[in-house]
Design a protein around this nucleic acid. Structure first.
Length: 834
DNA sequence: GCGGACTGCTTACCT
DNA sequence: ACAGGTAAGCAGTCCGCG
């Protein structure tokens, strides 16, 4: 049977002792497997001679060895070919997983080993050249072929690139992969509730208590709550969201039914299902004697045999996803906070310590809401997350399941490892990179405790500025990596004649000029493809909305990769960690921005601010800007471009703090206190009120008038505060708890005090990631959780102080101050503090 | 014993 | 668990002050 199917995942199958490919057939909405047919085996590389292996490993380990051969590899750190011994094993655990293993035995004998820490299924993907996430044509039991190939029309994309052979070859593989949209999948969200006694937290390790409810919400319209019969039957047959309430006499029956339904969906979504829902289900099933292997617990994930499982808790916690995909719209990592921020919906409020004692209808409502929210989050924005996972999987070569669980450094290192294996390059060990290419840095960071100097931030010229052009280096660090060819491969290379190639005079590091390395090619290709092609076709009106959605995901996905491509080199746990590389990249960045300022000033342009890769230029004629960009490109080889023109900008005296109004009246606020989400909603609303006045300002005269209006509005809000015209909720500060309350040993910040009061009074533990709402009070403690406070507890002076600092940033830039604005106002007793 | 100057911790932001 | 740079508010400490 010939069919099309997406490769979703690869794992190791213990019975057949081989890799197993998990495919998804979109037409039948069905998962199927193929066991490796190539005879591939796990292995490591070592410098121990082949003839000595037997003796070193001993009889016991040798029985687990499949073969010993010699292989040629290219060692990039020393720029030479090497011959190494490849030890193939009969099972992956023999390499490095079991107590007595080949890796450690070789090391203890003083030999070096390489590529022994890579998970077997990833190793398999590298060697077979499989493309996770891609669509395949399944031609027979031993024959699969990529459905999407490089086509004649793709040549036009290649023309946009200017690289060498390697770069084009990489692009030719990537382009077809990024053309194929993500499949439509039947999706099921699942959530369970457990009869844990009051105050006890159910854990999946010892699934002591019965499962009392399982809620299911599918994108095909399935809505069910399965309840275990306890006491009286529910009075309703449906929840208010329309989920059928189904009661089971026995827990076995319930679990069996759930397994049945799960198995008909290729994608299962949970919120924290890796740590709780799925392992708990599996453990209960085992305890009740249900024979099923549908849920498989692995080291750092729980998978579903009949599909794939994505734990949205892990996915939403991924900071690349949070920052670049959701623009920091949520901070906490709880279902309630994310749902509130992204969907404007909340969990149903119940007494958390008492869920098992809820009446059955209420339990059903509460439980179903969680499954409902999980499905909604997982399919948000017309399945944009699923699309992104496919994009990331195809670029990083990680399985969909791993992409959804690991962070950006893993995505990047896996992509690089794949390319290394493909070319027969030896993947170096971290300690060798540092020993051979250096680990020392020579610049001093501004922030104490950091390893090297970062970006440059210019001192702003405070005050209002009209007609401000913002120039920036598009993807500055990736451009530097590509143009100067900076990576762990090229920094401090072994060639004597490259030592004079020092892009930054005050750093002793040199850079290879012989074209060594592939990372600069990969980054440059991704960068050029994004800015020259995918960003354009995302906006192409001749494309269908579906296609534009897809290319939007591609474009954003590439951006996420690029944004982290410099940072990983400065990250200790990145397998290709190289402090000199990171230090060189930021140093070139500083040099580029300095050169641009110099050039701009030479042209008679006035630079009023700049941060890292941007320049704010006041009143610059268009021709002069074009001239400047051209000159900089010629001089430095990276592209400086006009990003936007502000009708006017108000710079505060602080760095990273300003307000800009674009020609269309839209306001961009950066860093100002009024924008921070931890300040009370009351203050934020007052701030927004003021901002709305600034929208319509076109010239200095307007600004003068607006100022008077602003003063009046600020006074108005202070009056409101004084008269108590607000709800408690509106004056609550909202600050995230980043660790458990007992983890704060050095100081006890206010939000922690409030959290501790909540814990004491309610007898619960507050989890990291929860956002604490508290108000400032006059009592000794100074704070109270909003739910325990009364209006008369409030310390209004504190609230006036925050109004002062919030508006002070703006007022200072407008040549006045909060005090001045408030003077002449008739004050009640509360304002006597002025 | 108390307040001001200071440092360090914590959180949230910018690029 | 990608990096460094900037800002704010508070907790805690030290020191001077009869």
């Amino acid at each position: 049977m010939i069919r099309n199917a997406y490769l979703l995942s690869v794992d190791y199958e213990g019975n057949s002792k081989a890799a197993r490919l998990k495919f998804f057939d979109p037409e039948r909405q069905e998962i199927f497997f193929m066991i490796d047919w190539t005879g591939h085996r796990p292995y490591l590389l070592t410098d121990a001679p082949p003839e000595r292996i037997k003796e070193i490993l001993g009889q016991n380990l040798m029985s687990r060895v499949h073969s010993i051969t010699s292989v040629n590899k290219f060692n990039v750190l020393e720029d030479r070919n090497v011959v190494l011994t490849k030890v193939e094993a009969k099972d992956p655990l023999a390499i490095g997983g079991s107590p007595n293993n080949i890796r450690e035995t070789l090391k203890s004998e003083g030999y070096r080993v390489w590529e022994a820490n890579i998970k077997y299924y990833n190793c398999y993907i590298y060697d077979t050249g499989l493309e996770p996430g891609a669509l395949y044509l399944i031609k027979g039991p031993n024959e699969v072929e990529l459905s999407c190939k490089f086509e004649a029309e793709d040549q036009q994309i290649i023309e946009l690139l200017s690289g060498g052979k390697e770069e084009l070859e990489f692009a030719k593989r990537l382009i077809p992969l990024l053309r194929q949209p993500a499949p439509k999948l039947k999706i099921l969200a699942l959530d369970i509730e457990v009869a844990s006694p009051r105050g006890m937290i159910a854990r999946s390790k010892d699934a002591k208590w019965p499962i009392i409810s399982v809620s299911l919400s599918g994108n095909d319209g399935l809505k069910q709550v399965h309840l275990l019969k306890r006491g009286r039957p529910p009075e309703k047959s449906k929840t208010h969201l329309g989920a059928s309430i189904i009661v089971h006499e026995r827990e076995e029956e319930l679990i069996k039914e759930i397994f049945n339904i799960i198995s008909s969906y290729p994608l299962i979504l949970t919120f924290n299902g890796d740590d709780f829902d799925l392992p708990y289900l599996a453990e209960r099933a085992k305890e009740l004697g249900i024979k099923s292997n549908i849920i498989k617990k692995e080291r750092d994930k729980v998978t579903v045999e009949t599909g794939i499982h994505i734990d949205l808790y892990k996915l939403f916690r991924n900071s690349s996803i949070r920052v670049y995909i959701f623009n920091n719209a949520y901070i906490g990592a709880t279902l309630d906070e994310i749902a509130e921020a992204l969907l404007n919906e909340r969990k149903i409020e119940v007494d958390k310590s008492n869920i098992p004692d809820l009446p059955p209808e209420q339990l059903a409502e509460y439980s179903f809401q969680d499954a409902y929210l999980t499905l909604k989050l997982g399919t948000i924005d017309n399945n944009s997350l699923i699309r992104l996972l496919f994009v990331f999987s195809r670029i990083s070569k990680l399985t969909i399941e791993d992409v959804a669980r690991y962070g950006i450094s893993k995505w990047i290192s896996n992509m690089i490892f794949y390319e290394y294996r493909r070319r027969g390059w030896l993947i170096p060990n971290p300690e060798e990179i540092q020993a051979i290419r250096g680990r020392e840095t020579f610049t001093k960071a501004t922030i104490e405790g950091k390893k090297y100097k970062g970006a440059l931030v210019l001192e702003p010229v405070p005050g209002p500025h009209f007609n401000v052009s913002v120039l920036d280096f598009a993807s500055m660090y990736p451009s530097i990596i590509g143009t100067w060819r900076i990576s762990f491969e090229t920094i401090n290379c072994p060639h004597e004649d490259c030592r004079t190639n020092r892009p930054v005079e005050d750093l002793p590091h040199w850079v290879c000029r012989k074209g060594l390395g592939i990372i600069p090619d990969l980054i440059k290709t991704i960068r050029d493809l994004r800015v020259r092609w995918y960003k354009r076709i995302e906006k192409d009106p001749t494309k269908s909305p579906t296609e534009r959605d897809w290319y939007g995901a591609v474009q954003r996905g590439l951006k996420v990769l690029l944004n982290a491509s410099y940072g990983v080199f400065g990250y200790e746990n990145f397998p290709l960690y190289s402090p000199p590389t990171a230090e060189m990249i930021t140093a070139i960045g500083r040099k580029a921005i300095m050169a641009s300022i110099e050039e701009a000033e030479k042209e008679g342009l006035r630079v009023i601010y700049g941060d890292t890769d941007s320049l704010f230029v006041e009143n610059a004629p268009k021709e002069k800007i074009e001239e400047l960009c051209k000159k900089i490109h010629e001089k430095l080889g990276i592209e400086l471009e006009l990003d936007k023109v502000y009708r006017y900008v108000i710079l505060s005296e602080l760095k990273k703090n300003y307000l800009g109004v674009l020609e269309d009246g839209s306001v961009e606020i950066k860093g100002l206190l009024g924008k921070k989400r931890n300040i009370p909603a009351f203050v934020r609303r007052a701030f927004e009120d003021v901002i709305s006045i600034l929208k319509d300002v076109r010239d200095e005269k307007d600004l003068e008038n607006a100022k008077q209006e602003i003063f009046a509005v600020i006074r108005g809000w202070c009056d409101k505060l004084e008269r108590g015209e607000f709800s408690l909720q509106e004056v609550a500060f909202e600050v995230m708890l980043t660790k458990p309350t007992d983890g704060y040993v050095k100081t006890t910040p206010q939000h922690v005090k409030a959290a501790m009061m909540l814990e004491r009074r309610k007898g619960i533990r507050i989890q990291p990631g929860a956002v604490i709402s508290f108000v400032k009070t006059k009592d000794k403690n100074g704070v109270k959780p909003v739910e325990f406070a009364k209006k008369e507890d409030l310390d209004l002076d504190k609230y006036l102080e925050i109004m002062e600092t919030t508006f002070g940033q703006l007022l200072g830039a407008l040549g006045t101050s909060f005090r001045e604005v408030m003077s002449g106002v008739k004050r009640g007793s509360l304002l006597d503090y002025f």
